[in-house]
């Protein structure tokens, strides 16, 4: 499949270094019978905030797992910063170090402290001895504390995870990802369970981090309103297919997938989708 990509006209502009993620006709499945994703095409610009919205079971989490190589497509082409995801490829493995992934339940180690959780983000930078002895270098500890302060948890470094509130736990997960010095942040419904105000605090934090470190954020959301508020682009997934890609330009919602839908039609389409 790689050969096809090289010889034929590529589906995306592969010359530009602007694209950080590209998918072309990607299919994937958990069992051999049903496809969880069917023919996904997308392309994400570096430094943007890209949202994925859709009903439960539509394939949003699966789409994220393709981007950190937890899943492999059964068909189609994926490029992450122009490299095909493959855990056995040294070059890609190195890239994984800088892809922050926050799963739906955050994946924090509950019985350990905030600092210990955040330091996990620096594990790829440790040598064997340091990581075996759990002896993190002084500058990494300093960096971890700086990031903990950045996400608003200063003074709570030694609190255990199970003592924290939902919003605080999300801050820890973000801090662990930032500790990776990431280029990409993948977050699966990170604010879905939060109240309106806390959800926006967390989103502001991510947008702020994006500005600081030219980070591309790819986030699964439940709430279309919130997605439109923060994202440059919103992809709508339905039953494993991408049915819409929209963005806000001025007062209008623009359709980027087909380019021929009006704001009204788009909103109508989406509200139809959620009312069911």
């Amino acid at each position: 499949m790689k050969q096809i990509q090289m010889t034929k006209n590529p589906p995306f502009s592969l010359i530009s270094t602007k694209k950080i993620i590209q998918m072309s006709d990607v299919w994937t499945s958990y069992d051999s019978k049903n496809f969880a994703l069917e023919g996904i095409n997308l392309s994400i610009d570096r430094g943007t905030n890209y949202s994925i919205v859709g009903q439960s079971g539509s394939g949003k989490s699966t789409l994220l797992k393709l981007m950190n190589s937890m899943m492999i497509p059964s068909k189609g082409i994926i490029k992450i910063d122009y490299i095909t995801p493959n855990m056995n490829d040294k070059k890609f493995k190195k890239m994984m170090h800088t892809i922050g992934y926050i799963p739906q339940n955050l994946g924090l180690i509950k019985n350990t402290t905030i600092l210990e959780n955040v330091l996990i983000g620096s594990l790829p930078r440790l040598n064997k001895i340091q990581s075996l002895l759990k002896k993190f270098p002084e500058h990494e500890i300093k960096e971890a504390k700086r990031i903990i302060q950045l996400v608003g948890l200063m003074g709570k470094e030694y609190r255990k995870i199970y003592m924290l509130s939902g919003g605080e736990k999300r801050r820890v997960a973000i801090a662990r990802a930032l500790m990776q010095k990431p280029t990409i942040l993948l977050a699966d419904e990170i604010v879905s369970e939060l109240d309106h105000v806390t959800a926006r605090e967390i989103m502001d934090l991510i947008v702020d981090a994006q500005k600081r470190m030219n980070l591309t954020a790819i986030m699964v959301h439940h709430d279309m309103q919130l997605a439109l508020e923060y994202a440059n682009r919103v992809a709508v997934i339905k039953e494993g297919r991408k049915i819409l890609e929209i963005g806000v330009e001025g007062d209008n919602i623009v359709d980027f997938q087909t380019g021929d839908m009006t704001t009204e039609e788009i909103m109508e389409m989406y509200s139809d989708d959620t009312k069911k």
Partner: peptide
């Protein structure tokens, strides 16, 4: 053990020994 911490940490690209000592054992 919850698969979420395993997924989150292994997707950083850590070694198996690291996964065991930083996730499996504490959990």
């Amino acid at each position: 053990i919850d698969s979420d911490p395993m997924d989150a940490v292994s997707s950083i690209g850590v070694s198996k020994v690291q996964l065991i000592s930083y996730v499996v054992i504490p959990e």
